[in-house]
């Protein structure tokens, strides 16, 4: 009976629905898992640097003041502010789910073009995602420790978005383009945002020691790379599992 009803509906709608629910399910699982791991890694490796920098941002500690300042101040422990930290977990999972939706959708297109999508291939997808969404924009707009001087936020967001788009297209061309023209275009797209240059502040006014700024950027990149590679692996795994399930039901 059900079977008969499904057949009676126009062919596009059930296929569309199945495809979308496969993408959505895989992306939700992958994004939630990778986002949770990213949040935990950020608490251990990034948040202490951020809280330390905020002591300088607020003026509680002063760099190059009359007295030397200890590099190991008392910092609030993990989850000292449950509301703030809880929101960070939620938003990290939310952000990585957004990344996952984009990635799994592109995986479904790649599979349609005849490329196998597996957990192992997913690791490379994750690396490409990290380069597109985190590393490339961060190369000229370094991950900001609180308190740094920066250009107008809207201008930076425009540059960030354009850089992510250009780098993402370049990653696709490198992965799936198969001629010199595609690789050449990819190289141009990778270079252009940085040759044009990101919006820069008119003057420097950051009160945070350079040691903390450098550590923050390095940690943000490191945690981002780990989380993205896991996201890609999970996305490939869940996509394959969902496809097998869909095939079994067909």
């Amino acid at each position: 009976m059900m079977r008969h009803m499904t057949c009676a509906t126009p062919p596009a709608s059930p296929a569309t629905e199945t495809m979308f629910s496969r993408i959505l399910t895989s992306a939700l699982f992958a994004g939630a898992a990778a986002g949770l791991i990213a949040a935990l890694l950020q608490f251990v490796f990034v948040q202490p640097v951020l809280l330390h920098a905020e002591l300088y941002e607020s003026g509680e500690l002063v760099h190059f003041g009359a007295e030397a300042v200890s590099a190991q101040p008392e910092l609030p422990g993990l989850f000292a502010d449950p509301m703030r930290d809880g929101l960070s977990v939620v938003f990290t999972m939310f952000t990585y789910t957004g990344y996952a939706l984009v990635m799994v959708a592109l995986m479904s297109m790649a599979e349609r073009m005849g490329h196998a999508v597996t957990a192992r291939a997913g690791l490379l997808w994750g690396l490409a995602g990290f380069i597109s969404f985190h590393f490339a924009p961060g190369l000229s707009l370094a991950p900001e420790v609180p308190g740094v001087a920066a250009a107008d936020v809207e201008l930076r967001q425009i540059w960030w978005t354009a850089t992510v788009a250009a780098t993402g297209i370049a990653m696709w061309l490198i992965a799936f383009g198969s001629n010199a023209m595609a690789y050449g275009a990819a190289a141009l797209l990778l270079l252009a945002p940085h040759l044009i240059g990101a919006p820069e502040p008119e003057s420097f006014s950051g009160p945070v020691p350079t040691e903390l700024g450098a550590l923050f950027a390095a940690r943000a990149f490191g945690v981002g790379m780990a989380a993205w590679v896991l996201l890609g692996g999970f996305a490939g795994y869940f996509w394959q599992a969902e496809s097998k399930r869909a095939d079994a039901h067909a």
Binding site: A12, A15, I23, T95, G98, A105, L106, F133
Partner: peptide, 20 residues
Amino acid sequence: SAILPALFAVVLGLGIVTLA
């Protein structure tokens, strides 16, 4: 039917990233 769901997922994902 293959492109549309993927396109919709990309738009949804980018919307989430923009919001967050």
